[in-house]
């Protein structure tokens, strides 16, 4: 019974972390059709921003929830102004450019922090469930993810800003004709997407050994989740995150973590064969 509870918590945690690492990418790719291959590096820089802030004596929650998203958001803003905005609508060119950026970020972080593994410990103690101990920080990640998804939903659905953003993504010429500058809106969206990536990196930082090349570990999973999710940003993220999380954890507990990873990838291949446009192109159509 206790084990069942532990497995449920672990599964929800895996789903939450998949959604969390993919959210920033989903915003940038799902809304702007920009393939940001530097997404993993944005996360990595979020982690470094949080660790640096904590080492400077700032409260760990402030570091994770405020400083890291702001720092990475500003980096994203600079990147958008200098590089991305010249490449809207040129899919392959943005891929190349952001790949170059990812190499650049790995290099610059290596120069500043050195190519060694760093980290901070989690601020929350372990929780006892019957005979088992669970990582208390898992609950923090789950809560942050739920709040983040809710926030994205509410902003897109029920604020004027969200409406304008969605309108611009669908018909930028129309938005422009109505007096909104698509340039500004793209900029803001990229800022938000980068900030969310930074937040994800910072939230996960206490659980991993962070190094300049850690970003590579996230990028594949984030892309798979976003692509399999399909056109709707939020419904897509949640549905594909849930499918992959459950498959991954089922095989992990039944066999081994390696088989769990393999199962996740096999599941992604099958899913994309059956639903080439992603889950939300068939189900939850028209949702956000």
């Amino acid at each position: 019974m206790d084990l069942a509870a532990v497995i449920v918590v672990e599964t929800v945690y895996v789903i939450a972390s998949l959604v969390l690492i993919s959210a920033g990418l989903a915003i940038v790719f799902g809304m702007m059709k920009v393939i940001n291959l530097a997404h993993g590096e944005f996360m990595m820089m979020g982690g470094y921003a949080a660790i640096t802030a904590v080492n400077l004596g700032i409260n760990i929650y402030v570091a994770i929830l405020v400083i890291a998203p702001l720092v990475v958001g500003v980096i994203g803003l600079i990147v958008e102004r200098l590089v991305i905005r010249h490449l809207y609508g040129r899919l392959v060119d943005t891929m190349l450019a952001t790949w170059g950026l990812s190499l650049f970020f790995v290099g610059i972080v290596t120069m500043i922090f050195g190519n060694t593994t760093t980290g901070i410990s989690t601020p929350i103690a372990g929780i006892t469930v019957g005979n088992y101990q669970i990582n208390g920080y898992n609950f923090f990640i789950i809560v942050v993810t739920i709040l983040l998804v809710l926030a994205i939903y509410l902003v897109l659905k029920s604020t004027r800003l969200g409406l304008i953003a969605r309108g611009t993504m669908q018909r930028s010429d129309m938005a422009s004709a109505l007096g909104y500058s698509p340039d500004r809106i793209y900029m803001a969206t990229f800022f938000v997407g980068s900030a969310v990536s930074g937040l994800a990196g910072a939230v996960l930082a206490p659980l991993v050994g962070l190094g300049p090349s850690s970003g590579g570990a996230y990028i594949a999973k984030a892309f798979i989740t976003v692509i399999a999710g399909g056109p709707s940003v939020i419904a897509g993220l949640i549905s594909s995150g849930t499918v992959f999380g459950i498959v991954n954890q089922f095989f992990t507990f039944a066999m081994s973590p390696v088989i769990g990873e393999v199962a996740l990838l096999v599941c992604a291949v099958i899913l994309l064969r059956l639903l080439p446009q992603g889950i939300t192109a068939r189900f939850f159509k028209g949702k956000m």
């Binding site: 895996v14 972390s17 088992y132 101990q133 850690s214 570990a217 992990t252 507990f253 973590p257 390696v258």
Partner: peptide, 20 residues
Amino acid sequence: VDFFPLDVSDFGSTIAKIQA
């Protein structure tokens, strides 16, 4: 005995299995 590829960084399920 559990083996892990060098890029595995999430050990939540392993920790639960160990406890089991």
